[in-house]
Design a protein around this nucleic acid. Structure first.
Length: 609
RNA sequence: GCCACCUUAGCUCAGCUGGUUAGAGCGGCUGUUUUGUAAACAGUAGGUCGUCGGUUCGAAUCCGACAGGUGGCUCCA
């Protein structure tokens, strides 16, 4: 029973749980020799795992749904029965259900079916288990059901997948059938519509339609290529991140994309990165690898010379690409790739400076997501009592207090989670909400007590004593490509002016010399002001060219013809999501262009025209 | 990597159970038109139907392998 399941309203939870049973009943009716796994409630519905002789495909879902509906129509009561464990074991043995038998055995030895529970650890005295029966289908189950099969709301089977028994790839693979379910058909329809909307906003679809990026089989999967338009978006985001950091004293550094593996052996990353790309040299015996992260490089830049407490904090930033050989099946558009760029940065400071440094970075995160018009909350991740965490316990406690204090003084919307810290230090992860209500981890601030130790970093304090600096890792966007995927879906490709690959499109009313020359003069003036402008001078109707500009989601479209040539004024057509109020008045061309340039510079999310 | 599904023109997709020269819309190109705020008209070029192999008189269609893609593989009676 997942945490997620528990957060649901009780009645909905019971309906979904009941549907899982009904699904199992239906599958048992349709197929021979069905071995049942587990069937829990999940975020928007339920699933059930089966071990079947034949493989089912999505085409079979309709058939199963139909049988489920029949069971629902019969309105069977959910009958609860409590029996002794030993009797239950016998009963299941007779049914020849090996998976259920394993569960019973776990209850017997561990008092729980939790796969993470250690044998012998906190054995509850369980002597009875319950079975729930509907019609002639009976299942071992803790409970939580609707009164009868007729009271389960609206559902739809959605997909099918392979899933290992108890999530362990050494175990047999079972067939998992997923369903979504809600109290009413209306809610179900709304949910399905949201899924549909998400499909329409899929960044891979928009990436193609708006010509932002491409993938090539020859270059390799998970290695996206940025087109001119995509490169603009990417550069603008990256530039903003660096401007925010530079304002807080971060200096730009640069490091090569490969390094000797000994660097990562020393940092401790080598063992922790089985998904590394190794690089061999024909000339030398040294082993190299593509850098999976940047901290060891920045550490080496810091370590080049001795430091005084007067020099601290030292802050380095670099927008650069890391390489990680992710599992093939996990690659996805721009969000899960093998060459990911980070707006990375590292601070080397004294313990006393942690608070002000973290606070400054929190300030950047706020600025960044305000400009991007996205809401977020913070998750403070602390250590628990387990032994995986390295570094001085007192320092940990102090640092965790500092993070909490900063979260309060910065008035962050935050939650605290014990046991979620990195092994090298506590952290703040920022969870960004997109316009469809989904959550993404983007920005992060991580304290690190381990790497300064491993690389023996030091500075001289005011008493002349050698001291160990603390390291702070930070990223505002996280992976820039991944952020792009989130942002493309958040905006549905309707970027604000400062990020739009094409900010203005000039459309000609005809192809007469005079008109074309006038349009070209506007393009030239715009370019002088660093405004990104396109020219729509095809031999097409004005309506067609306006449509094209809309389809490409260009913020401003201006049509020029005789009238504009005479007046020297244009009436920009504004993309509707940017409009504050509708008052399309004519602007002198120079004023219009300057306003657009200013909007871009100020990173405004709405138009001021 | 594992499970299921998919792969036909630059894009979106037809092509029924194998049967003449594989189709459409958009986009591209050429021409006509010279357009005033979300799609003018006509013509035309694009495809060894993902790759390789097999079955067959005959394969886009059936079978197999491989490649690439999509959804999932975290939710524990």
């Amino acid at each position: 029973m997942g945490e997620n399941g528990r957060k649901q309203p009780d009645s909905l939870y019971k309906q979904r749980h009941s549907l899982a049973h009904i699904l199992a009943y239906a599958v048992g009716d349709i197929y021979q020799n069905v071995k049942y796994g587990v069937g829990p409630v999940i975020d928007n519905g339920f699933f059930y795992d089966f071990d079947l002789d034949e493989t089912i495909s999505e085409d079979d879902l309709g058939k199963i749904e139909k049988r489920m509906q029949e069971i629902i129509n019969k309105d069977y009561k959910f009958d609860r029965e409590e029996i002794e464990l030993s009797a239950a074991k016998e009963r299941i043995k007779k049914q020849e259900q090996p998976y259920k038998e394993e569960l019973i055995n776990d209850i017997l030895t561990k008092g729980s079916t939790d796969i993470y529970a250690e044998e012998g650890e906190d054995i509850e005295s369980v002597d009875k288990v319950s079975f729930y029966t509907i019609g002639d289908f009976s299942d071992l189950c803790r409970g939580g059901h609707a009164k009868s099969t007729g009271k389960v709301g609206a559902f739809k089977l959605t997909k099918i997948s392979g899933a290992y028994w108890r999530g362990n790839e050494k175990n047999p693979q079972m067939q998992r059938i997923y369903g979504v379910a809600f109290e009413t058909q209306k809610e179900l329809d709304e949910y399905l519509q949201l899924v549909e909307e998400a499909k329409n906003r899929d960044h891979r679809k928009l990436g193609r339609e708006l010509d932002l990026f491409t993938v090539s089989d020859l270059v390799g999967s998970g290695l996206p290529l940025m087109t001119p338009r995509g490169a603009v978006l990417r550069e603008e985001l990256a530039r903003y991140s660096q401007e925010l950091q530079a304002a807080q004293g971060f200096e730009r550094v640069w490091s090569p994309h490969i390094a000797k593996t000994t660097l990562y052996e020393k940092s401790g990353h080598y063992q922790k990165f089985p998904e590394r790309f190794e690089v061999s040299s024909i000339e030398s015996n040294d082993k190299f690898m593509m850098k999976p992260m940047n901290c060891p490089h920045h550490i080496q830049i810091f370590a080049r010379r001795p430091w005084s407490y007067r020099d601290l904090p030292v802050r380095y930033m670099e927008n650069t690409t890391n390489y990680r050989d992710e599992k093939h099946g996990e690659l996805h558009g721009l969000s899960r790739i093998r060459s990911l760029s980070q707006d990375d940065g590292h601070v080397f400071c004294s313990e006393e400076d942690i608070e002000s440094e973290v606070s400054a970075i929190v300030g950047m995160v706020k600025d960044m997501y305000k400009s991007l018009d996205m809401k977020f909350y913070a998750r403070l991740s602390y250590r628990d009592s387990s032994s995986i965490y390295l570094g001085d316990k007192k320092l940990w406690a102090k640092a965790e207090n500092i993070l909490a204090k900063v979260a309060k003084t910065e008035k962050l919307d935050f939650m605290e989670e014990v046991g979620e810290a990195a092994f090298y230090g506590p952290k703040i992860d920022f969870m960004v909400n997109d316009s469809l209500g989904r959550e993404w981890q983007c920005a992060t601030i991580q304290l690190d007590f381990v790497q300064p130790e491993r690389f023996d970093l030091s500075y001289v304090d005011s008493n002349g004593a050698e001291k160990r600096p603390v390291m702070v890792h930070k990223a505002l966007l996280g992976s820039i490509e991944r952020f792009m995927s989130v942002y493309i879906e958040h905006t549905a490709g309707r970027f604000p002016v400062w990020l739009a690959p094409e900010q203005i499109r000039v459309i000609t009313v005809n192809q007469e010399q005079k008109t074309v020359r006038f349009a070209e003069s506007i393009v030239e003036k715009a370019k002088e002001l660093d405004v990104r402008i396109g020219l729509g001078n095809d031999n097409e109707s004005v309506g067609k060219k306006i449509r094209s500009s809309e389809v490409w989601k260009v913020p401003y479209t201006v049509v020029v013809g005789e009238k504009e040539i005479q007046s020297g004024e244009v009436t920009p057509r504004i993309r509707n999501d940017l409009e504050v109020q509708k008052s399309h008045s004519p602007y002198k061309i120079e004023d219009f262009l300057k306003t657009v340039a200013n909007e871009a510079r100020s990173r405004a999310s709405k138009t001021s025209l």
